[in-house]
Write a protein that binds this DNA or RNA. Structure first.
Lengths: 250, 250
DNA sequence: CTAGTGTACTGGTCGGACCAGTAGGCTACG
DNA sequence: CGTAGCCTACTGGTCCGACCAGTACACTAG
């Protein structure tokens, strides 16, 4: 022992090097959203690789949500602003492949939303509070008339709360998980028999949460928020999993 | 109004169709982890597209962590078991592009870990509790001797807790966010002057958490857990952000 | 039976080609 | 002079054919 430590040589593909360089440029800010990459034919000159290689690299970057290509665009691929699309995609895959149950997803939402509310009670501004109130007002106006508007206003409420909480990661994850949950049970929600009653109760819960946020009582707001989500979704969750959800209600 | 609703025609690329089909096969379980895809030349026959198109599709699938190709492998691309690698990648990108601060990441960990502990206090088995104890014992044995072993045991502890909590999503996110945080401050942790004291205090905190889990007191365990993480990481977080972290300690 | 060779595949990369589409300059008309 | 319409030069999407280095496996010679 004691000789030189040789590390296994990892053969690195050409397209990976291309990906790395462009990724680095984007993440470091050298390429801002809206900026254009050179054309594929130009890139293949700059990187000294073939167009196939350039294209494979662009496909990877596109899959990661960093750039977008449009056929015929004379300005080359566009650098995109960050969007949680890639995160959304990988979480959706996770949900399918790892067989996440609806219960786990709802539980995760309870955790995220509860935390966001807790933080919002501390950090919210008056404008953000007004936004929440407005969203609930929109919900109330939509009860029994426009289910889609009700859902949209509900999303707006939770989004305002998440923003008020000040944590971008919570915000994005809330957004992603919510859309997955809603997609899973969209048809069942639409078919719920006591749907209007559910909506009214949901509004009441939202108002209680707002009151607690206004009062600055974070723990209470968090508890109410988790309770509200439990009430709204428990009916769609298997009985066996419901007890795990209730563990978050103490 | 009333005429037929025409939807905008979305031109869909050939490689996207290939991606969709293979993705569907994998996520539906028709292709299990370990299974092999046909060779690229075979796929180009089955899909009636060129090899370039097949390869671009495979690059996308590879970026999503669903398959892996190895040059020279006579059996074709391999279907991978789910790994949070793709989720990890997109969260890391999120952290860089959306400029997530260390404070936000730590805050998210406090939320996730607190919830995992809360659930674990309810749902843990005796084996899992023993695992946690063992991890802490390993940590204690490593204090002042082997910082790497200390870190690994710490990870093992939190992993056991997350597993005991029973929510795979919390588990995966905990894992992903932890590795991002650790990567961000690895060198600063290694250089901490009062490092050994930090370790000892951390162990004490872990023991308190275990006691609360054993007693089945979820809320207490969650509070202790968040406090422990705050104590351990607060020093690396900007003063301005620390108050937001403290909002989770009430 | 084993060690070694050979071969028939694999994926990675290259170059060239064609097509449909777009943007923007150019022209001809009003 | 202004504008509507065409034209051209580019773009990305797809295909084809070729070559290389690597791997697994069968086959052969010892």
């Amino acid at each position: 022992m004691g000789g030189p430590r040789f590390e296994p040589v990892r053969t690195v593909r050409a397209y990976e090097r291309v990906v790395e360089q462009i990724e680095e440029a984007v993440e470091s800010g050298a390429l801002s959203p809206g900026a254009r990459l050179p054309s594929e034919r130009e890139l293949m000159v700059q990187f000294s690789v073939s167009r196939s290689t350039v294209r494979e690299a662009l496909r990877v970057l596109q899959a990661r949500g960093l750039v977008r290509s449009r056929p015929g665009d004379p300005h080359g691929a566009e650098v995109l602003p960050f969007s949680p699309a890639a995160l959304h995609k990988s979480m959706t895959t996770l949900a399918r492949v790892a067989e996440l149950s609806l219960g786990e997803l709802v539980q995760f939402r309870m955790v995220l939303d509860g935390s966001a509310v807790l933080l919002a009670a501390r950090l919210r501004t008056e404008e953000q509070l007004a936004e929440m109130c407005e969203a609930v007002a929109t919900m109330r106006a939509a009860v029994g008339r426009d289910a889609q508007a009700f859902g949209a206003a509900d999303v707006a409420f939770h989004d305002a709360v998440a923003r008020a909480g000040g944590n971008k990661l919570i915000q994005v994850c809330t957004d992603v998980v919510r859309s997955i949950v809603l997609k899973l049970i969209a048809e069942r929600i639409a078919a719920a028999p006591d749907r209007e009653e559910l909506m009214r109760r949901s509004i009441r819960h939202h108002e209680e949460v707002i009151a607690a946020i206004r009062a600055g009582d974070g723990p209470l707001a968090a508890q109410l928020s988790r309770k509200a989500m439990y009430d709204y979704y428990a009916g769609y969750v298997d009985e066996g999993e419901r007890s795990a959800l209730r563990a978050l209600l103490e």
